[in-house]
Design a protein around this nucleic acid. Structure first.
Lengths: 340, 340
DNA sequence: TTACTCTTTCAAAGCGCTTTGGGTTTTGCC
DNA sequence: GGCAAAACCCAAAGCGCTTTGAAAGAGTAA
């Protein structure tokens, strides 16, 4: 069923039917009703490609996931981000188009996304400190919102980020206040901006209290369970083991907990743990009492907000960049306690 | 840069340029080279919508994620599935289009996906036992592959599934052989087909050994960490606690482990645990020695295979349905041991 | 040279929609 | 009743591409 058939069936012109469907004022209410009913009954919905061709709008948003060459892993928070963004998109009739792009092919990929023209805007995931995608997209003139920030990019651009610095600073200070002096940082990959900021905050907080940084207590890698486990295991076996861990994700923290148990220690009593908690749907940090003391910031609501920002940019071309900084809350669970 | 501009620049007709780019034989090799070089230099890539309109192909695959009304959670295995499928798609020049669809709006959504015409085929996620999407899609004539199966659907259709029955039967028997008699099942939502099959296998395996089923040892819900924790905690507090747990996902198993530890018990010695392991990138079940004894089946490779099947169906219209059953391997970790 | 076949190229139609510019009825007012 | 304004509707152009059908050019044989 296409417009032509529908209009023939209604004995109206395509123009009128199109206008009726798209809510133009110059069409009789009776006619409009008749058209809408027929469209519904005959299960007509306009061909997205043709509509896109005619309007120049794709009614779709691109999400580009960088895939590194070693491990082609999709970030576990992606699902929740999409769930949040998807809600916003659905309300406004936008689709989600996903491209998995290898690091090397980034530039090429963005250019072709633009000229293929099947998205109206892009969400940039996993920004690096000097992310080349940002100047590229600015130059291309395609609306975009970065989930996160790129500290070394000085162009104005739209972003939505969690205040990672403040969150990790507070978390570190919280541990310091509990008397911990040997605090380990189990961080994400530090060429990613959020991880870089977290480390800076951690280092600053320690330095401000006159504590010298011990490189043996800092690790950085893809935030898997195994990584948390191995890092904590190794550190706990060291000569001067940490009394507390600051961890970048729940999943990694679960690995840390495993190592702690395995070492015969008890989390919250012998060793403290604070983790960042993205508030993932399938990995809630407890319901009533949180398992982990954590800096919490919902990635789902980040998705919803980023989507809103992007739609705004798309609808108001030429509007200045939007930025939004979400504060993480520090929630107290049972995984922290005074230093022994 | 569009075809018209490119062809003007080359002083050729659009036809010739189009044919040169799409590898038609009736174009001089010299001309073709010249065209290809110019396309690259001028960074031309064809407009996907226009191309789609003209060819009737969208060069995109739809992934429809059912979102239930209570918890709008995206299944954590989705990321890995997409990572696998994405690789296949990328090689063949297909995009991924994602729709999040509420339960109620399923039928409407599929119909509109069809007539909007922006995908050439669909992967169906999370099939239910009598999943209405299957007859619907068959009727609509849109190529599709189901990730999983629907036991109560008798139509022929294409699917790719893990042999959940055999996996859970083997796992149950493994525990029985270790002397366990009170084996708990912490299952996914049992209107989902995979969970149903797992329960059937568990029940059958127990019955075959003459063990009566204890409903107090069976739970079914969304497979979150908390669900695993609560279920195990409650069961362990019961009058006749289980000596072993059969769990449907790693994340849930992590919750079970937490409850076991909290009860002062040791996993593998006091209580055994077998889990299904989707071999997720960020949640590997150990590297050298598996943490959990598990039935393992890579959801990433399922994604890659399902994508291949779907592309085959798209390219060979009218070909008979394809089916593929992947066997899970039973890997032995440290979470199981003889019944006390 | 002519006739004929390949090879190479082109003009134009068509994919399904929106939107412009114009035409035909109605309506409202004097 | 007459006339301008408002309301309603339409034909056709155009979005960027593929593809059909045909023409032009090149090569070969007679």
């Amino acid at each position: 069923m296409n417009l032509k058939q529908l209009s023939e069936h209604l004995k109206l012109s395509q123009t009128t039917v199109s206008r009726a469907l798209n809510g133009f004022p110059e069409v009789n209410e009776k006619t409009r009703e008749r058209v809408l009913r027929a469209a519904k009954d005959l299960n007509y919905s306009p061909n997205a490609r043709a509509k896109g061709l005619a309007t120049g709008r794709a009614q779709a948003i691109g999400h580009v996931l960088p895939i590194s060459d070693q491990h082609e892993m999709v970030n576990p928070i992606f699902g929740d981000f999409i769930a949040g963004a998807g809600q916003t998109y659905a309300k406004e009739g936008y689709e989600i188009v996903i491209s998995l792009v290898r690091d090397k092919e980034q530039e090429q990929a963005y250019r072709s996304i633009l000229s293929r023209g099947n998205v109206d805007g892009i969400i940039v995931h996993g920004p690096r400190m000097a992310d080349s995608r940002i100047p590229l997209l600015s130059e291309l003139g395609l609306p975009f919102v970065v989930h996160g920030r790129a500290s070394e990019v000085n162009l104005p651009y739209s972003w939505l980020d969690t205040n990672n610095s403040r969150a990790f600073r507070r978390a570190t200070e919280f541990l310091l206040d509990l008397g911990h002096r040997r605090i380990a940082l189990i961080n994400g990959l530090e060429f990613l901006d959020f991880a870089y900021r977290r480390r800076e905050a951690y280092v600053t907080a320690l330095s401000d209290r006159g504590i010298t940084i011990d490189p043996a207590l800092m690790r950085s890698d893809e935030m898997t369970e195994i990584f948390g486990y191995r890092s904590a295991r190794d550190m706990l076996r060291g000569i001067a083991p940490p009394t507390a861990f600051l961890v970048s994700s729940m999943i990694t923290a679960i690995g840390v907990r495993r190592a702690i148990h395995e070492a015969g220690l008890e989390m919250g009593r012998d060793v403290s743990v604070i983790t960042h908690d993205d508030d993932l749907g399938y990995l809630k940090n407890g319901h009533d009492v949180p398992i982990f003391t954590a800096t919490r910031s919902s990635v789902r609501s980040a998705g919803a907000k980023a989507a809103e920002m992007l739609l705004h940019l798309i609808r108001n071309p030429g509007s200045p960049p939007l930025t939004q900084l979400m504060e993480a809350e520090l929630i107290i669970g049972t995984s922290t306690g005074p230093a022994q």
